[in-house]
């Protein structure tokens, strides 16, 4: 029997180790697995490399993980957003490392990593600072830069529904990076608004097939990051 359901976010993230690379889904607050992130803060793992498009906002979720000094390095495309002060402050004091990656290159690096593709060429960033020091090659008269696939130890993602086998569907633009992140981690941990029996999800509509999902936590009424930020909440 396949058993992927965990009874709590805490038990699902218990073995995330110091120095792990963790992919965290979400684009701003949309799709951010805030309960899993808070469980990771409680768990205490340090020196993490975290991959997310942004760096969180306010003092909850990803911003709180960074503020509690659990993150040694961020890999992201846009570390500044509204209400985002934690990362920019640490960065200006040279207390956190940043690998800045164009957004499409970031998504493709994760996709490639999950598909067993070690590297690929792209025209994105050619002629810019972000291509400096990277291998270049011409194809059909156009210049491209070599980018490497990205894999990780863990992925933390949020979805609308997960079934017992681990098939997953998402909600609107909360999907964003999560389906590619689910493919690129040794262990993919999903928090689901809704946990359903197999057969409940339409096979033609499944976005992340069960093979990519290792653990499921049901979080039926997830916290909303923007509401916490507006209320001035600080985690923990």
């Amino acid at each position: 029997m396949i058993h992927k359901l965990y009874d709590s976010a805490a038990s699902a993230v218990a073995d995330i180790f110091d120095g792990a690379t963790v992919l965290i889904g979400g684009f701003g607050e949309a799709g951010s697995p805030i309960e899993l992130i808070h469980a990771l803060i409680d768990q205490g793992a340090r020196e993490l490399t975290v991959v997310n498009n942004n760096t969180g906002s306010g003092h909850v979720g990803l911003a709180a993980l960074i503020e509690n000094r659990r993150v040694a390095k961020m890999i992201c495309s846009f570390p500044r957003t509204a209400n985002s002060t934690v990362f920019p402050d640490l960065y200006s004091k040279n207390k956190i490392e940043l690998e800045l990656v164009p957004q499409g290159t970031l998504a493709e690096r994760i996709r490639a990593g999950g598909a067993g593709i070690p590297a690929f060429y792209t025209a994105t960033s050619v002629g810019t600072q972000l291509a400096e020091g990277k291998e270049h090659r011409q194809f059909n008269g156009r210049e491209y830069v070599l980018e490497h696939g990205l894999t990780a130890d863990f992925a933390l993602i949020k979805c609308r529904s997960a079934d017992r086998l681990g098939n997953v569907i998402y909600n609107k633009t909360a999907r964003n990076f999560s389906p590619v992140m689910a493919t690129a981690a040794q262990t993919t941990i999903v928090q689901a608004d809704e946990y359903v029996p197999e057969g409940k999800l339409e096979p033609e509509a499944i976005v992340t097939p069960a093979i990519y999902v290792d653990r499921i936590v049901a979080v039926s009424t997830p916290l909303q990051e923007s509401e916490l930020v507006a209320a001035g909440v600080q985690y923990p």
């Binding site: 607050e29 499409g104 970031l106 998504a107 996709r111 609107k172 964003n176």
Partner: peptide, 30 residues
């Protein structure tokens, strides 16, 4: 809050809209 644009502003989806993941979205661009 789960229907936003790249500027993280709230938007709507027209009739006939589609959602897809980030690598697909940037495949449309790239």
């Amino acid at each position: 809050p789960e229907l936003i644009n790249a500027g993280k502003r709230h938007v709507t989806a027209i009739t006939g809209a589609s959602f897809f993941h980030h690598a697909d979205s940037f495949a449309m661009i790239r």
